[in-house]
Design a protein around this nucleic acid. Structure first.
Lengths: 106, 106
DNA sequence: GAATTTCACTTTGCATCACAAAGTGAAAAG
DNA sequence: CTTTTCACTTTGTGATGCAAAGTGAAATTC
């Protein structure tokens, strides 16, 4: 069933495309470093437009990597966090990236 | 002149976009690991179409990251390698990626 | 030596996608 | 009650990743 033969090098195809995109990698890294972020904090930290940020957050949410929690009691203030799935996927991404680093340095 | 304020986190905007793209990152990593590659070897290692591969190689060449050397004596057999510029840019990319790894793991 | 294959491309075309700008609706602030 | 803030949504555009098919020259096969 698996068609790609193993090589001496890293299998780059395993690099999760959803995570690899720069903007989303940034978001994932921030969410991994601090548990919960508001939309506003992510926005000012990453310096992205509303539309762009929400689009990437939605993409990550659709992959079940990020949870969106709307706090409806206080004015619309959403909280974003990694899901368990997201954490696992991100760790996997980091592992492969680390292999690339190792391979590239030697 | 520089408008973006420094934050506690990694400055993701410094991640070289030309290198970050998956296909080109793969190429750069392979060229960093082994000095010279033929078109054919890159192609079979990365499992990419001709058009796709040459496009990415050309993009890297246009940024002066990769040298293309046509060996005209023997049938068209091109050799690809990192330029000095390319090596520096790639090392810089790896440094930033390493910061992201560190930050994400703690 | 004619036909086929290999190689390193080029061209074309499509579909995805990043991104910005402007709009929306509700709540809070003034 | 008007304005601002917040968390979005909608729309539009340009870039770009990628495959498929073509090209031309050299090497190989017959």
């Amino acid at each position: 069933m698996s068609q790609k033969p193993t090589s001496r090098y890293v299998d780059f195809s395993k690099l999760d495309k959803t995570i690899h995109e720069k903007a989303r990698l940034s978001i994932m890294a921030l969410l991994a470093a601090k548990a919960e972020w508001s939309f506003q904090d992510l926005k000012s930290e990453l310096d992205m437009s509303d539309g762009n940020l929400i689009t990437h957050l939605r993409a990550l949410h659709n992959s079940d990597y990020v949870s969106m929690e709307k706090d409806m009691e206080k004015r619309p203030q959403s909280k974003y966090a990694l899901t368990a799935t997201g954490r696992v996927a991100f760790e996997r991404y980091l592992e492969i990236m680390e292999q690339i680093l190792k391979m590239s340095k030697s």
